[in-house]
């Protein structure tokens, strides 16, 4: 039952209790009209209540938000860190083409340029697209924003900030 009113202390409830049901909430003792009832409301006490509820609420909110944020940050995946890895046969990469392989946590493009195999990172340093080997121009190019690299990973042109790591 919502207590509408203006009981300064709970002990008043006790006085009410003599044969009167508590559903008489909102009544005022000694014949005070309801309109004047608010004069006696202890606003200090009410604001104290708001502070307590607000404070506890804030603490609960913070301790709820923390695990939520931790939850949406994905756990770090473990990668084996090999210095050498057999990713496939040399014949997997046809002459004058490039093929991308997973190497540890990196993606690597193996280029077969007239029988000579070289490897460098396949992830464009601009915005992370996977590059391809452009045999006609003899360079590595990224289709997303037009970055161009030499076979050695050095920048020719484009928006990319760094050279490729050569493997």
């Amino acid at each position: 039952m919502a207590q509408q009113g203006n009981f300064k202390s709970p002990s008043r409830l006790g006085e009410l209790g003599h044969g009167v049901s508590l559903s008489s909430a909102g009544t005022v003792s000694e014949g005070k009209p309801r309109a004047q009832g608010l004069k006696d409301v202890d606003f200090e006490r009410r604001s104290f209540l708001v502070k307590i509820v607000g404070g506890i609420g804030a603490a609960v909110a913070i301790s709820t938000i923390y695990p939520v944020i931790k939850y949406i940050v994905p756990p770090v995946k473990q990668f084996s860190n090999l210095n050498e890895q057999v990713v496939g046969k040399a014949s997997d990469v046809p002459e004058n083409s490039g093929k991308i392989f997973q190497f540890n946590k990196d993606k690597v493009i193996v280029i077969n340029d007239n029988g000579q195999l070289t490897a460098c990172s396949a992830v464009c340093t601009h915005l992370g697209c996977l590059v391809h080997w452009d045999n006609a121009q003899n360079l590595i190019s990224c289709p997303c924003h037009g970055a161009k690299y030499k076979q050695t990973g050095e920048i020719i042109s484009g928006p990319q900030p760094f050279t490729f790591a050569l493997l």
Binding site: L130, V131, P143, G146, P159
Partner: peptide, 27 residues
């Protein structure tokens, strides 16, 4: 295929073209 190069001529939907071009232009 996470191990295939990006397709040639790749571009976003038309409503991101202006931003896309800025990323290309600001080289």
């Amino acid at each position: 295929n996470p191990l295939a190069p990006a397709p040639m001529g790749i571009k976003p939907e038309w409503y991101f073209w202006a931003q896309f071009l800025m990323l290309k232009d600001f080289s």
